[in-house]
Each structure stands twice: as structure tokens, then as C-alpha cells.
């Protein structure tokens, strides 16, 4: 019985992450459309796109690895989701919150991209290969300030657990954004790289690389990757809110906090042209790394 509740809770978490992630995707398109003085698609447009893709009658793949890559991606997204505390307290959505820690998460968040790289490599499309190279380069860029920020927090609060960090925030009465501001700035500046919105959309540059790694994926494969992307966006946003913004005690608070946070890369992207790869890496290794170093110094004293 206990196991059944756990399984049902896990399923509910996945459904929640999928719904919220897809809705955010639709709302993002709406927001960008309003910025460009358009009406924009309805908020449920991404659900329709996903449904249409999964209902396609054909889906060509060029080999085992390409067949598996989207599954790999979605498995990784859901695994990561299981280790993230969705709500601060209460019995709902507690999957493996207390078992994992930040170091495990750092590894998990990279594995999906590696699987994607293998799958895209098998398609044989030159655009995919270029996209994968760019993606891994960009990851080298934003992982450094991101890891620096997390390590600073781990040193400062002497815990690697996410729930531990949330407890620390509750104990001191303020969110971590106020007690360790430099680490927060470094992490937030690394965020657009993770979400791959406009200045940092060098991976799937549509007009330049023909959507990069996903250029040979269609039908159900693209649908799976879209689903995985939505879940993973929710995972990242929830992680940021949990660590830096004190978590959320109910779903409404969570949605409000994550949406406000999400608007940072989206709005930046709506008014920015695309960086080149070396410009992106240069950006991440500039101010974000500097703030990360200051955060580390602050944490050590």
C-alpha cells in the first residue's frame, strides 16, 4: 500500500511537471509574441504541437542510438525530477527528496545531454554534429559559475542536501538570496545558458543549424524530446526556487515563483540576437565566474 502511494505520488509529480512545463512553454511564446506586437498562439499551443507530433504516422530513425536517445533524455529528466523537493513540507510530491544531494544532481543534469549527443551523432546529419559540439562547449561555459555557486552554498551551510539548504534558509529566517547574494547572482547568470533562450540559443539555431541536434528527429521522437524539455525546465526552475528563493509551501506559490524566475531568460532572449559560441563562453567565464569567486570567498569566511 505504501509502495502504491509512492508510485502514484511519483506519477502525479511527472504529470505536474509536464503540465506546468508545457504551459510555461506556451506562455513564453505568448509573451514573446506580445513583445513583438503580435497576438501569439494560445497558451495550450505546445500541448497541441506535442499531441500532433505523437500522432504522426511515421517516425524514421537511423539506428539504435537515435531510437534510444529521446528515451534516455526523458528518463534522465524524470530521474532528476524525483530527487527535487517540489514543496517544502507535506506528504505530497516527496519522492526521493531526502536521498539525493546536489552533487548527484549535478551529474544527473549532464547525463541527458550526453545521451542526446550520442543519438544526434548517429543521425549522420552534419548540423547535428555541429550542434552537439556547440552544446557541449556551452555547457563547459555555464557549468563553471553554476558549480561555483553551489559549492559556495555547500561550504557556507555545511550541507550538500537540498532539503538541508531549505532548512537552513528557514532557520535563519531569510532566503539564501539575501544571505549569499554573490553565489545567487552567479547561478542566475548561468541560467540562460541552461535554458538556451536567445543570446545562448547557439545549439539549435534554427536559421543557422536547422535546429541542430534535433534536426533528424521527427514525429514521436521530437514529441518525446519536447516532453522531456518541458519536464526538465520545471526541474531546473524548481531547483532554483528551492535553493535560492526559499522553496514553496504550496503549488500556487511554486508556480508564481518559478514563472517570475522563468521570465528572466525569456525576456532577455526576446530582445537579444544570438551569440557566437566563443562569445557565449566568454560571457559565462566573465562576470558570472567573478561573482562565483566572490561567493566562494564570502562562503569561506
Amino acid at each position: 500500500m505504501d509502495l502504491l502511494i509512492k508510485i502514484l505520488g511519483a506519477l502525479a509529480t511527472v504529470v505536474l511537471a509536464f503540465t506546468v512545463g508545457m504551459t510555461y512553454g506556451g506562455l513564453t511564446r505568448k509573451v514573446i509574441a506580445r513583445i513583438q506586437n503580435r497576438i501569439g498562439p494560445p497558451w495550450y499551443q505546445n500541448f497541441l504541437d506535442n499531441l500532433k507530433l505523437i500522432l504522426k504516422k511515421e517516425a524514421v530513425h537511423h539506428g539504435f542510438m537515435q531510437h534510444v536517445a529521446p528515451l534516455w533524455l526523458i528518463a534522465m529528466s524524470i530521474t532528476t525530477l524525483m530527487f527535487i523537493p517540489i514543496l517544502k513540507d507535506g506528504a505530497w510530491f516527496t519522492n526521493f527528496n531526502f536521498d539525493g544531494d546536489l552533487i548527484l544532481l549535478l551529474y544527473l543534469m549532464v547525463i541527458g545531454s550526453l545521451g542526446m549527443a550520442l543519438g544526434a551523432g548517429q543521425t549522420g546529419n552534419p548540423n547535428s554534429a555541429i550542434g552537439v559540439t556547440r552544446g557541449l562547449t556551452q555547457m563547459v561555459g555555464f557549468e563553471i559559475p553554476w558549480v561555483m555557486a553551489l559549492v559556495a552554498l555547500m561550504i557556507q551551510y555545511e550541507t550538500t542536501s537540498i532539503t538541508g539548504l531549505m532548512d537552513a534558509a528557514e532557520a535563519q529566517g531569510t532566503w539564501l538570496v539575501f544571505s549569499s547574494p554573490f553565489a545567487t547572482i552567479a547561478a542566475i547568470l548561468a541560467m540562460p545558458g541552461m535554458f538556451r533562450y536567445s543570446p545562448f540559443d547557439i545549439v539549435g539555431a534554427p536559421a543557422e543549424l536547422a535546429s541542430g541536434p534535433v534536426s533528424e528527429f521527427g514525429g514521436k521522437y521530437l514529441s518525446t524530446m519536447m516532453t522531456s524539455g518541458a519536464i526538465f525546465a520545471f526541474v531546473k526552475l524548481t531547483l532554483y526556487v528551492d535553493i535560492f528563493f526559499g522553496g514553496a509551501s504550496n503549488l500556487v506559490e511554486l508556480v508564481v515563483k518559478t514563472f517570475i524566475l522563468y521570465m528572466f531568460p525569456v525576456l532577455w532572449g526576446a530582445v537579444s540576437p544570438r551569440f557566437r559560441t566563443e562569445q557565449a563562453v566568454k560571457f559565462f567565464w566573465g562576470w558570472p565566474v567573478l561573482f562565483g569567486i566572490i561567493g566562494l570567498i564570502q562562503a569561506s569566511f
Partner: peptide, 10 residues
């Protein structure tokens, strides 16, 4: 609901 696709697969 009309948007551009980058490749024929999509």
C-alpha cells in the same frame, strides 16, 4: 498555430 520548421523531419 502555423510556425516555421527547420528541417523536413519536423
Amino acid at each position: 498555430g502555423i510556425r516555421g520548421a527547420a528541417t523536413p523531419r519536423q
